[in-house]
Simulated scan of single mutants.
Amino acid sequence: MRENDALTKEMKPLIDPFGRTIDYLRVSVTDRCDFRCFYCMADTMHFLPKREVLSFEELDRLCTVFVALGIRKLRVTGGEPLVRKDVMTLIASLSRHLQSGALDELTLTTNGSQLSKHARDLASLGIRRINLSLDTLRADRFAKITRWGRLDQILEGMESALAAGIKLKLNVVALKTVNDDEFDDMIRFCAERDMGLTFIETMPMGEIGADRADMYLSLTEVRERLQESWRLSPSSYRSGGPATYYTLEETGSRIGFISPLSHNFCEGCNRVRVTCTGTLYTCLGQEGSVDLRKALRTSRSDDALIDVIRSAIDRKPKGHDFVIDRNDNRPSIGRHMSVTGG
Rank of each mutant, 00 (worst) to 15 (best):
residue 241 G to V: 11
residue 4 N to V: 15
residue 212 R to W: 14
residue 222 V to H: 01
residue 83 V to I: 14
residue 257 F to A: 06
residue 120 R to I: 11
residue 93 S to A: 12
residue 336 H to C: 11
residue 74 L to I: 09
residue 195 M to D: 05
residue 238 R to Y: 09
residue 179 N to A: 13
residue 298 T to H: 15
residue 168 L to H: 06
residue 183 F to H: 09
residue 80 E to C: 03
residue 192 E to R: 04
residue 76 V to D: 00
residue 150 R to N: 10
residue 307 D to A: 14
residue 6 A to N: 01
residue 52 E to P: 04
residue 192 E to V: 03
residue 85 K to T: 03
residue 82 L to A: 06
residue 72 R to F: 09
residue 304 A to P: 00
residue 79 G to H: 02
residue 202 T to C: 05
residue 214 D to W: 07
residue 212 R to C: 14
residue 54 L to W: 12
residue 3 E to R: 13
residue 308 V to K: 07
residue 177 T to G: 07
residue 113 S to L: 12
residue 232 L to D: 00
residue 160 S to F: 14
residue 190 C to H: 03
residue 211 D to I: 07
residue 96 R to D: 00
residue 46 H to A: 14
residue 172 V to Y: 02
residue 307 D to Y: 07
residue 277 T to W: 12
residue 173 V to F: 06
residue 62 L to D: 04
residue 155 L to Q: 09
residue 170 L to M: 15
residue 165 G to H: 08
residue 239 S to C: 12
residue 163 A to S: 15
residue 317 P to H: 11
residue 142 F to Y: 13
residue 109 T to R: 06
residue 143 A to K: 10
residue 18 F to A: 08
residue 96 R to P: 01
residue 239 S to Q: 01
residue 97 H to F: 11
residue 107 T to F: 02
residue 284 L to W: 00
residue 6 A to R: 09
residue 303 D to P: 01
residue 19 G to H: 14
residue 115 L to Y: 12
residue 14 L to Q: 05
residue 88 M to A: 03
residue 102 A to W: 02
residue 311 S to W: 12
residue 177 T to P: 02
residue 82 L to V: 05
residue 69 L to A: 08
residue 25 L to D: 07
residue 249 E to K: 13
residue 320 H to N: 13
residue 147 R to L: 05
residue 208 I to H: 10
residue 166 I to V: 08
residue 263 H to F: 04
residue 215 M to N: 12
residue 14 L to M: 13
residue 277 T to L: 09
residue 166 I to N: 10
residue 98 L to P: 13
residue 60 D to M: 00
residue 329 N to R: 15
residue 339 V to C: 12
residue 2 R to C: 09
residue 268 G to Q: 13
residue 43 D to K: 15
residue 299 S to C: 03
residue 269 C to I: 03
residue 295 A to F: 10
residue 140 D to M: 14
residue 169 K to Q: 10
residue 16 D to L: 01
residue 322 F to V: 07
residue 300 R to A: 04
residue 70 G to S: 07
residue 159 E to N: 10
residue 256 G to D: 10
residue 227 Q to K: 14
residue 127 I to M: 03
residue 139 A to D: 06
residue 53 V to I: 15
residue 169 K to R: 15
residue 52 E to S: 09
residue 334 G to Y: 06
residue 91 I to Y: 01
residue 157 G to C: 13
residue 91 I to W: 08
residue 309 I to D: 05
residue 304 A to K: 09
residue 339 V to L: 04
residue 9 K to E: 07
residue 232 L to S: 02
residue 256 G to W: 06
residue 305 L to D: 04
residue 8 T to I: 11
residue 175 L to P: 03
residue 171 N to P: 10
residue 201 E to R: 10
residue 235 S to C: 04
residue 193 R to Y: 06
residue 310 R to T: 07
residue 55 S to H: 10
residue 323 V to G: 03
residue 181 D to C: 04
residue 266 C to F: 04
residue 168 L to W: 11
residue 218 S to A: 15
residue 194 D to N: 13
residue 200 I to F: 05
residue 182 E to L: 06
residue 10 E to L: 15
residue 108 L to D: 02
residue 86 D to P: 00
residue 323 V to R: 05
residue 145 I to S: 03
residue 304 A to N: 08
residue 234 P to E: 09
residue 114 Q to W: 09
residue 339 V to H: 15
residue 195 M to H: 09
residue 65 V to G: 03
residue 180 D to K: 00
residue 118 H to D: 11
residue 6 A to T: 04
residue 254 R to T: 11
residue 161 A to I: 09
residue 88 M to R: 04
residue 193 R to D: 05
residue 100 S to N: 07
residue 208 I to Y: 05
residue 160 S to L: 09
residue 277 T to A: 10
residue 200 I to W: 04
residue 236 S to C: 08
